[in-house]
Design a binder for these strands. Structure first.
Lengths: 330, 330
DNA sequence: CGCAAAATTGCAACCGGTTGCAAAAAAATT
DNA sequence: AATTTTTTTGCAACCGGTTGCAATTTTGCG
């Protein structure tokens, strides 16, 4: 920097200002500096800038679900959106370790400008911990709650559960099962509540309620064993497409045809749901919108940390494929 | 930091040294400092340290394949291994943009300590560009070449192609097809070379050679249309599991049974390959070893950048499932 | 106990930028 | 043309650590 200043015949402040937008530099000075910088191949150091401005342009993404294909979209969008805005993505892999303390410390040391906590399997308190530590945070896929003190972007899980119940009714199912994701996840609880509640209202019998241990094909497979103990269930609402595919294969292995003998309704609409071998009818969660909105929000908070907590919920829709019987024309 | 020093009754150097391992501090001083630090909730700022030491502990992962489930493992391992070693993962999403210049600049500004370029679809020159810019770089999934001036970790693609040919022969196939990944990828070229070469030696006829446009189910599906123009091919060697699954579904849609009418051999062994609906026999690439080795190597280079370029190739193996007919007992 | 060697400590400079403030220069006003 | 207002510029302090060097303290040994 000093060299550039000398070559351009100006002060260090001048070169700093040329590379800081919004700073006061005359056109002539800027030109001189830019020429000198090009000649010397100079680019300001982000590290030094971070130290001086107390802003790192680093946004952390904390996730604990690195094995779910749904997260491919998350990673893709998160990184590309941040890059587009001149921020940098720092990934934090929670995988198992669930104590907030440690990670708040970690991210504080990393000096990230903000954090997106992208998981529904962690309690609200996890995201809150960042908030109280003074780190702007978005709880993506988090739980909606009226008195939220943290930004939440995601979907209305309860409503989605309700939507699942209606979907079954429209197709004339009478007796169904719920095969949720991990029981401790707020998303699971909310969907279950919506599903069971609306089923009750519509006269749909929820004969079985089971939960997969985690969001994997394998867990879905084993949990389906439990569902099938009741041989009269006509359709299953699964908490995740992966789980659902495992469940479908378990059903097929037991000799059932889909959707004639048993129907399946998934959740998320991952790429594989569209594959012929599954042709899964599923509730689509608009991950794209959710992530883009989260990024926008977190970047916004960097500018204005005092922004009051918002809840952004996106609508889901069922995408019709072949794993449920068609809507009954009544 | 100053506060900690004052509270502990020592100089700033002393507190710095307590938090720098390998530095010279007496037990008594360290104790005083640690107590003071705890009292004040002090943790050294990584930013400031980076500025002073010219080391950021940031490692970049540049990837252009955010939609392939195989990369879930990559992201998972990359992040967790780095975290374990006290480094931080910075993701760079290439997606389409393939000009090295821009990204070398980007990563130089980010001041990463090292870079892992994880893709086989980029020319060797891409990784080289980092090298010449003075950034330690590993080309993961890169092309092996004797006169390499860049670290490469991956597999022997040519040998794998050869292995595929032998696999077909063992099972008595006579006439097969190659359905590769993107034709410009070095991995595709090398596998094709090995496959075609060994087929020739073994008297296996490669009746068709096609390439999918990218590593997706959909591309595999459409490319399979081309393969099926020749109705006599008995088995297909695919450049990727995703492509293979698309191809399988195209074959099924055309009324073929797997493996009776047509066999499939995939590549990578992604999680879905084990799903009942595909039960894909595939060549397993040890992604876990590859990534762990890459991380180890890049971290090693941070310590000693002059380390001379290494080639680390890991063995692949075919994992037997149900998409090929069994080995013929001759 | 005295002295040399080794270990510890503090000083001060440095890493590479930013920014408040006052001085200088340019532009606008009368 | 003189004066006021606005814009541009440089100075110097600061961000929060590290580290070479010399001074000081501890330790080891005869």
């Amino acid at each position: 920097m000093k060299e550039v200043a000398e070559l351009a015949g100006v002060s260090r402040s001048a070169v700093s200002r040329t590379f800081t937008d919004g700073a006061s530099v005359s056109a002539r000075t800027r030109e001189k500096v830019e020429k000198a910088a090009k000649a010397l191949g100079y680019k300001p150091s982000l590290i030094a800038r971070s130290l001086a401005t107390n802003r790192t342009k680093l946004i952390g993404l904390v996730a604990n679900n690195f094995q779910n294909p749904a997260f491919l979209d998350v990673f893709d969008l998160f990184t590309s959106e941040l890059q587009k805005r001149g921020f940098r993505p720092l990934l934090v892999n929670l995988s198992g370790d669930t104590s907030p303390k440690k990670f708040v410390e970690l991210l504080k040391q990393y000096s990230v400008d903000g954090v997106i906590v992208a998981t529904s399997t962690l309690p609200t308190s996890f995201a809150n911990a960042f908030q109280t530590a003074g780190i702007p945070v978005i709880h993506t896929f988090g739980k909606y709650q009226a008195n939220a003190n943290v930004h939440v972007v995601g979907i209305d899980n309860e409503f989605c559960g309700s939507m699942a119940a209606r979907t079954f009714c429209e197709r004339g199912y009478k007796k169904v099962a719920l095969l949720g994701g991990p029981e401790t996840a707020t998303s699971t609880q909310d969907r279950a509540a919506g599903f069971v509640g609306t089923s009750g209202q519509l006269g749909l019998e929820v004969a079985k309620t089971c939960f997969a241990e985690n969001y994997t094909y394998q867990s879905g497979r084993v949990a389906m064993g439990e569902v099938m103990e009741d041989r009269s269930v006509e359709a299953v609402f699964c908490g995740d497409d992966l789980i659902c595919m495992g469940a479908m294969d378990a059903a097929r292995a037991a000799g059932k045809n889909i959707p004639e003998d048993i129907g399946f309704l998934g959740f998320n609409d991952i790429a594989m749901a569209g594959w012929d071998a599954y042709a899964l009818t599923t509730i689509r969660q608009p991950i794209r919108d959710i992530i883009m909105s989260s990024v926008e929000l977190v970047v916004g908070m960097v500018e204005n940390p005092a922004r009051s907590p918002e809840i952004r919920l996106f609508p889901c829709s069922v995408v019709e494929r072949g794993s449920l019987r068609p809507v009954s024309r009544s």
